[in-house]
């Protein structure tokens, strides 16, 4: 009796915290869907009164469209290449350990945690020297290289759970190192590929530091463009809100539809958790 009543009480704090979490989303949407005439700071919390309008989203999209394109051009190859590298590394570092492999793995992992400021000056000099500074290409390269630690970790942890006997059997059947990879490891690690691809997509899409340092105004991804838009006095705040929502939408959709894979990537980043 007492227990079942207290069960309902649990919902009170949960609902309060839910409100806290949804407030930014509410404000973005409520503002985004109002007509230009209806926008005022006084009524920022009220629902749109004259139906749903898309003016703000259209305005924000027309301003951000080129930067969305840059983000997509940058994120897709970055995610794919770093996932492939991570898979190969994870395979070798878990199943084909060579002398020193157990020292190399933590050394790679540490790269996941460093503040990127500590490699930024050399990175800019390097990109300038190979003529990749200021464009999308340099940004892709940075995301691929600095993505290696997390992708390697996720795949290595996954491949480590695959029993040795499976590999031994394949080897007796005459498969070599690449045969085992393509016939056994790759097919069973497709879910891990989804996890890693999502993770890399999200972190490259959301990145700001590399983008703001390595790209010029022609090649800005959407995060940099949005930040500049928000900093300018010219663009109305309702358009900023609509723009924020649009910039968040791709990763938000991934989260909603592929939440479990997203969560697994999140947990992998915490090592043992």
């Amino acid at each position: 009796m007492n227990r079942s009543r207290s069960r309902y009480l649990i919902y009170i704090p949960l609902v309060l915290v839910t409100i806290f979490y949804l407030i930014p989303l509410y404000v973005m949407l409520v503002t985004g869907f109002k007509s230009f005439d209806e926008i005022s700071l006084q009524t920022m919390w009220s629902l749109p009164k004259s139906g749903l309008h898309f003016d703000n989203f259209i305005e924000a999209l027309s301003k951000l469209a080129p930067y969305f394109k840059n983000s997509i051009i940058m994120v897709v190859p970055a995610a794919i290449i770093s996932s492939i590298l991570g898979s190969l590394n994870g395979y070798i570092l878990s199943k084909w350990k060579f002398p020193g492999a157990d020292l190399i793995f933590p050394a790679i992992l540490f790269g996941m945690f460093i503040p990127y400021q500590s490699i930024l000056i050399p990175l800019v000099q390097f990109m300038k020297s190979i003529n990749l500074y200021g464009g999308v290409g340099g940004l892709i390269l940075a995301h691929v290289i600095y993505g290696i630690p997390i992708t390697t970790l996720t795949f290595r942890n996954y491949y480590a759970t695959i029993p040795k006997e499976l590999l031994e059997a394949a080897r007796i059947d005459g498969a070599d190192i690449m045969g085992i990879y393509f016939k056994i490891m790759l097919p069973i690690s497709l879910p891990s590929f989804v996890v890693v691809l999502i993770w890399q997509f999200t972190s490259a899409w959301n990145d700001f530091l590399f983008a703001v340092v390595l790209t010029g105004s022609q090649s800005w991804p959407v995060t940099v463009a949005l930040n500049n838009m928000a900093g300018s006095q010219i663009i109305a705040w309702n358009v900023q809100m609509a723009g924020s929502f649009l910039a968040a939408l791709p990763t938000l959709l991934i989260y909603i539809f592929l939440g479990n894979y997203f969560l697994r990537g999140l947990m992998a980043g915490a090592l043992k958790g």
Binding site: R7, Y21, L263
Partner: peptide
């Protein structure tokens, strides 16, 4: 609880969003 997965989904969604988006909204 009933509805646990809905709450969990809501509490975790900010992790999918860029700090830039978060900052722009919280600035207002």
């Amino acid at each position: 609880l009933r509805g646990e997965s809905i709450f969990r989904t809501i509490f975790l969604f900010p992790m999918a969003i860029s700090y830039i988006v978060t900052g722009v909204v919280w600035r207002w």
